[in-house]
């Protein structure tokens, strides 16, 4: 077995203490929530030497706890450290925010969902096959290198909507498209951000979070009573795997919001598809038109044209699923 990289743990007692420590370590400290990705990173060491943390800041010790689900005045508030299993099993979330409950239930496997948190899921690193190879085998753009091996290499699972600063890796969060479709807001210790603006285009960043910033809460407005939200995921195996393409939609009551993920370096809002559906009755034709519109701006790489068909099928099925009540 490989030797794991060494680090220290610090227990944060308050949000302020956590972010002050993050600031003091200037990038050499990482927040630790569910931690399902971190030990792997420390053991397989895909990053260059300068990008590892010396210290992990345990957020679970913050008081008052950031693990809760409540609905007040038409806003669902979920604490940043709420486990995915608790979101997936929550009756209220399942009933009124079904895309979010379904997305939480489709992440990885039961054991991962029992550990992983919602904030960890939305802050996961944007990655591709090359990025994740052990021992920094590919010193790609995302790690400060000078070229993207995926552009000319195995890009089967990469972006179909172009690159960001040359990087074609994708964001594989299952929660992200659900939050965008449901028009959620993400509260950090510094600001409130609309979900659509949370995932950043910078390389190597995956989110807009500053070095001394953590997610504190997710807020989701209650959807209109006659709108229905759905989530759908296509992956090689039906459990454990990251999505090849996933998506979420909120449709009905004059609203149409559709988001896809794993198709671009950040979640992709299918605004063209939303426009197509405006004022239309949902039927087979409308769903097909929306699906075509959703991928109308796709520009596939050498090996991933097939993902366009997957994305289309997902949009069409999601739209049709919002019809059946």
């Amino acid at each position: 077995m490989r030797t794991i990289r060494k680090f220290e743990f610090l227990n944060a007692r308050t949000i302020d203490e956590a972010v002050n420590t993050l600031a003091a370590y200037k990038g050499k400290a990482w927040p630790f929530a569910g931690g399902t990705d971190i030990l792997r990173m420390m053991r397989f060491q895909p990053l260059p030497e300068n990008l590892y943390p010396e210290v992990l800041i345990n957020l679970k010790t913050i008081s008052p706890s950031l693990e809760y689900i409540k609905e007040e005045d038409g806003i669902l508030s979920i604490g940043a450290l709420t486990k995915l299993v608790d979101i997936a099993n929550n009756a209220l979330v399942g009933e009124r925010y079904s895309a979010l409950a379904n997305a939480a239930n489709k992440v990885a496997s039961p054991q991962i969902r029992n550990m992983a948190t919602i904030s960890g899921n939305i802050c996961q690193l944007t990655h591709c096959l090359y990025f994740s190879k052990p021992d920094n085998r590919f010193h790609c753009l995302r790690k400060g290198g000078s070229e993207c091996p995926a552009q000319l290499g195995d890009n089967r699972y990469c972006s179909i909507f172009g690159d960001v600063n040359g990087c074609v890796a994708v964001n594989t969060s299952d929660i992200a498209p659900a939050l965008i479709a449901l028009n959620a807001r993400i509260k950090t210790n510094k600001r409130m951000v609309n979900a659509g603006e949370f995932w950043d285009v910078r390389v190597p960043g995956s989110t807009i979070l500053d070095e001394d910033e953590i997610v504190v809460e997710i807020q989701v407005p209650r959807p209109p009573p006659d709108a229905k939200s759905v989530f759908m995921k296509f992956s090689i195996r039906s459990s454990i795997d990251f999505p090849i393409v996933n998506g979420a939609a909120l449709i009905g009551d004059g609203v149409a919001r559709i988001a896809l993920n794993a198709v671009a370096p950040k979640p992709y809002r299918a605004t063209k598809a939303e426009e197509v559906l405006k004022g239309k009755t949902i039927d087979e034709t409308a769903a097909e038109e929306a699906a075509i519109a959703a991928v109308s701006e796709a520009s596939p790489l050498s090996f991933n044209k097939w993902k366009i068909s997957v994305a289309k099928a997902i949009v069409k099925r999601m739209v049709l699923n919002t019809k059946s009540r």
Partner: peptide, 18 residues
Amino acid sequence: RGACGGCGACTVIIDGRA
């Protein structure tokens, strides 16, 4: 090899959850 491919051979129960 400790990097979690999701095989589950290392599953234990903590506070009632796998």
